[in-house]
Amino acid sequence: MQLLDIRNLTIELHTESGVIRAVDRINLSLKEGEVHALVGESGSGKSLIAKAIVGVLNKRWRVTADRMHWQGVDLMRLSPEKRRKVVSRDMAMIYQEPSRSLDPTAKIYEQVAESLPDSSFKNSFFARGSERKNKVKALLHKVGIRDDKKVASSYPHELSEGVCQKVMIAMAIARSPKLLIADEPTTALESIAKAQIFRLLKSLNQLKNMSVLMISHELEEITDWSHAMHVLYCGQMVEAGPTAKVFSTPCHPYTQALVKSLPDYAQGLAHKEPFYALKGTIPPLQHLPIGCRLGPRCPQAQKQCVVTPTQSKVHSHTYACHFPLVKEKPKCNRS
């Protein structure tokens, strides 16, 4: 069953100098128990998409979508109160810098206890104290914090970033959500803590059938365990499909450049040999080129590229390019 189904999500920002389309007609669908990755460099709008899904974008942004279904319910049509209820029941989000998203003046125990829903308690009101304690302990154990007593009684600044992120995850899974949105959860962490967090998310996905939407700018981190990936460039979805397929046969020049810029995957590259990299830089939001936004930087660009390419779909592999690198037979089921 489709858990999340988004069609033509557009996010615009109104400024003095005109409308900036930060996210341009994105499609995304997620099945239960899947791990999807949203990959893109800074300014590609990946965090905006996550915020639009949970509905926390501020008033300056205008979000429109043909369809934003959550288990068959259109989130765009719900009243804000109802939408918040649905979101808080079924989704959870973790952020980039865990130590900044935790309350610095409250102990970890209080913060985790706060995130426990009232409905999860079985005992009467007066017997809740010990039940709450046990639940917090269980949650902390679940995310791999062995020393639960010490962690629960300390403040966020006394803990390392890795432990803070684990606490964030513990708080996120307290309501056992169906979808966990992880917005670059490991950028602030070092490699060992990073691996721990990934293992944790992976096991949560496998054991609890929790869907994960991973947002990241590092390709190599997510390749081994995500089912599908979506590559974004400047707010346009350039390529989407099963991870392995996108990796082995990228159709879009940008995806190819991303894959080739990884030291591990650029095999056959001698020591100290230059990487393959696109020329130029990511354009600022105010100066996005028309048509395919990769246009000016694309090595294969031709005249047609000033028209925004439609998304072509071959099996489950979608790409938006006039001149795909791998020519597969298109089945003309454009969406």
Partner: peptide
Amino acid sequence: MAKFSLFSEESN
């Protein structure tokens, strides 16, 4: 392509 036109007057 003239690169200096990448930046608008306002931010320059």
